[in-house]
Write a protein that binds this DNA or RNA. Sequence first.
DNA 1: TGTACATCAGTGAACGCGCGTTCACTGATGTAC
DNA 2: TGTACATCAGTGAACGCGCGTTCACTGATGTAC
Lengths: 234, 234
Amino acid sequence: MSSSEDTIDAKPAGGVRARVRAELTAEIKASARRQLAVEGASALSLRAIARELGMASSAIYRYFASRDELLTALIIDAYIDVADQIDAADAACERSDRRGRFVAIAHALRSWAVTNPNEYALIYGTPVPGYAAPSDTVDPAARVPTALLTVLVESEIAEDRAPDASHLGEALAELLAFTDHTVPAAVMARAVEAWAELFGLISLELFGHFHKSVTDPEAFFAHAASSIAERLLP
Amino acid sequence: MSSSEDTIDAKPAGGVRARVRAELTAEIKASARRQLAVEGASALSLRAIARELGMASSAIYRYFASRDELLTALIIDAYIDVADQIDAADAACERSDRRGRFVAIAHALRSWAVTNPNEYALIYGTPVPGYAAPSDTVDPAARVPTALLTVLVESEIAEDRAPDASHLGEALAELLAFTDHTVPAAVMARAVEAWAELFGLISLELFGHFHKSVTDPEAFFAHAASSIAERLLP
DNA sequence: TGTACATCAGTGAACGCGCGTTCACTGATGTAC
DNA sequence: TGTACATCAGTGAACGCGCGTTCACTGATGTAC
């Protein structure tokens, strides 16, 4: 989190060299993202990026130590990007309108996915074989589920009206601890179900399984999102 | 569907050559499946298969005209395999126990996915870039959703108790026609939601997003499946 | 049952391609005095 | 302000690898008479 270097507006501003370097780093990532769209993550090629940028393939190594490091940067960027969109959508809502916030978050998620299908596939689709996500990706990855959970936590669902959720306490222990046990297990279970349904809807749509069945995925998603909200936040 | 050739037990049985050919075809697919596990679909290599089988790489072309044709065969096999498992689970239930049938289908789906994560990723994960699924895959792919729908159709949900589902008539037109309009739009919407949630749960689990949150995915899936059944089949 | 011919499986070399990564290098930009 | 040195970006050749696919070929297995 040494982002202080980037935001300082002092005279040298990190120097001309640093600025040019940041720009080229961004260009490399942009070119890589364009490649994702055509070939998919596992076909991401440093040489193809260098070709598009008109530079020697070896020059990429001044910016990323390896192909995997580039992939990691793309993954982290994608997580940050969705999370930012989601947080913005949430922030635009009346704080007390929890259903509205949930629906807004859901729509922000789908919008981002439809606009950036390759980034979506990168982080929520089949993991790239042979690639092990480093721990840097964990925090950004947690922001989306956290945003969904926060809506829950801020609503005061003290009562546990769902039946027999005690047996889930163990399966969801980590999550319950994460919210300091302010959310009862049965409610948490419904939240995880909602989370799964949202991602299921988006994945089925983007990966082609709604072809010839759900012909208007956007309309259907809108319906599903509000019906989940009703179920989740009574 | 020329499976009659395979099942005939007459003397020549298609000839020795045909039998050997079928066996080697199966061996090639088995080796390919083993590769999926290690490298993922996009890294599937005909040369690696040939190496494992101890034959010249060019020999594979006596069995599959191209890499894509092999991939298609694997995809179709995977669809058939899940669907067979699901149908068997369904068939083992009391016909009238619709909730039981739904839950059995759900568990068969997850069991298959957990046992064959690579085949699951092949058909329900990120599509292989550059690969266009031929129309032969459509029918096998439809069997899983059809099994889920059939449970619905066979229950007599004549009443449409959910509110304002008329606006979904268009989005779900194909599905409603598929069931000869015996299922009202609102119920169909709940069915698609259920379908999405099942796949969402399985995908989140298999693709690593339950790590450190849902620590007992099997227990949680069991809970979710039965709560979906209650919601879907009141 | 035996012969003559057609079909097919499998071989091994080759074509042309792309890839990630390393390395010694040139020249430009920055830093210290 | 000017010089001397260190740092860094970018180059181009090379290493070693794997890939899908084609092709002319050798033998073995099947078929027709």
